[in-house]
Design a protein around this nucleic acid. Sequence first.
DNA 1: CGACGGGACGC
DNA 2: CGACGGGACGC
Length: 304
Amino acid sequence: MQCQLWMGSLEPNMTESFIMAAFLRMGQRPLAVKVMRNKFTGEPAGYAFVHFQTDEESVDAMHKLNGKPIPGTFPVVRFRLNTASREARANLQQEREFSVWVGDLSPDVDDYSLYRVFASKYSSIKTAKVILDSSGYTKGYGFVRFGNEEEQRNALYAMNGYTGLGNKPLKICTAVPKPKSALITQSATSTTTSASYSSGTEYSQYYDPSAYWQNYSAWSGYYGQGEPAPQPAPTADAAQAHAAAAAAAAAAAAKAQTDDLALVDHKTCIDIEQMNQEFLDPELSLWDSLESSKWFPPDLIEAH
DNA sequence: CGACGGGACGC
DNA sequence: CGACGGGACGC
């Protein structure tokens, strides 16, 4: 992660020393702050990179300060922090995301408390984020990201209904990656991508018998959010041909699929919740032990 | 507790 | 009862 955070929502008058002072007043110790500027005009670009001694420090600062008011701002401007890394951003385009949606968060739950609860059980945890509205009030849900699918899948069951964070039992669902329309042209084109779809879905389908993953495939085809395989950068000619084909396909698919997408989203959450109840009620510890031992009945795997 | 409606690729 | 980041890379 290169020991640095991306910081957004900066106003033009926020200098590096101002930002550094704000972190210090919040009990964090960055090594340096660099405010980025428009390369041509020299105007502040509205974001900065904040460097720390270690990855641990930067992640800690992110979870403790994100969403909190920046000292010395009036009207209040809140910290908007994110992990920053060239490689991570590049990988983000290629790698699958292993995250869960967490709902029923009470107002006192912030990024850090959410992070701590999951970090105590899941060593691969990357980030936790509570979604706030423009006034800084929680929307009652958030996202927790993991480094691998094992822990993401385990948390889906083990943390559903968890009490001990805020004053309500947590609700956990599979997180649907946020659509990024810019990725459309990368997805709907190559056979390589199609092949990776099937390999990605077959693993998940036996695990989750709900309609989610079939529908997710449709999402993936539309948004390009599936499991894009590493593929060589297309040549300029190929890119043009692909862009034309993808644009036509996307335009045709967009209108037809828009309505379905919203429905899928909400149904998914309900299905998973009901499944959790069925699985967890009879014998909770059994499922935990099965999860942790990565044991699955071969018959069950083949059947679905 | 079923399921919106704002806003639309990339040249 | 809710589905995230709109803006991202110099010294």
